[in-house]
Design a protein around this nucleic acid. Structure first.
Lengths: 143, 143
DNA sequence: GTAAACGTTGACGCGGGCGTCAAGGCCAGT
DNA sequence: ACTGGCCTTGACGCCCGCGTCAACGTTTAC
């Protein structure tokens, strides 16, 4: 199977596939004309990669799983190295969730305090206007 | 006060200060020789910026707070635009925490299952070895 | 006088995971 | 033969918050 078909079946871009190959994550056999040649097993590997990526794993973190599958094991997480990644990720997640929860609490407290003070300063009058300049846009990273 | 002193007192780099200026976040007066000239008020603004950054706010998100302070308000969050940022960030945090909690649960379940299966496959024998290749490094982003 | 320590602007690098464009090769249908 | 659709490699762009180096001017201490 050629790259376009694999990409279509796996639901990712050909660019991503070439990227994985450049990382040595998903090397491809080559046909006589130089075209990449994939098989059904590669589709499985891609499934593993995508699943882990949905969990927020980096590509390098998927490597043990992929290698494990290629080594003939029934599942990507049949190998100790994969389990180690799971454990490390769990620890990272716990740390991250805890930090975010702390931040959430602090921001929440700040908001409550600021709202109280605004109320105190302006019991019934007009709210203080300070949007004189082009105030910020938006983002949304901490995924 | 020149850029080096402000950087030292605020605990950040001169490069960061120049960066903030390039964003229009912390413009600086200029001395006759072209040197940036800061005052105590700028130190306060930097304090606000750093606090928010520690919360994981992007620089653009700090802009309303900084402008609010510069407008003469007692606190950076005395202005409605700042409160809006607080609220938006809270929503983002909630969303993010929830996603991470879900992922944590799923990864945890996968780990438990994989450990069980490994145990079943190898009741007393040697564990399957598959770390034949240089398996992964590490990262730790979702901050 | 001169060297060290500060200041200036400009520009590239990084990390992650690709998107996107460029310039070309290979193959199928008509 | 030619068009269109696949494929190839290479290289730059993006986002964000700076780090780091270059090449140069200014001030300060001796």
């Amino acid at each position: 199977m050629r790259i376009g078909e694999l990409a279509g079946r796996a639901g990712i871009s050909t660019r991503a596939l070439r990227h994985y190959e450049s990382l040595g994550l998903l090397p491809a056999r080559r046909a006589g004309n130089g075209y990449r040649d994939y098989d059904e097993a590669d589709l499985r590997l891609l499934g593993q990669i995508r699943t882990l990526q949905d969990f927020g794993f980096g590509l390098e973190d998927t490597r043990p799983f992929v290698e494990c599958l290629r080594a003939g094991h029934p599942a990507g997480d049949s190998c100790p190295a994969s389990l180690e990644v799971y454990r490390r990720k769990l620890a990272e997640l716990d740390e991250c969730i805890e930090r975010l929860a702390q931040v959430r609490a602090e921001v929440s407290a700040q908001l409550a305090r600021a709202e109280l003070e605004a109320e105190a300063d302006v019991p019934g009058g007009p709210p203080p206007r300070c949007e004189l300049s082009p105030c910020g846009t938006e983002d949304g990273r901490p995924a």
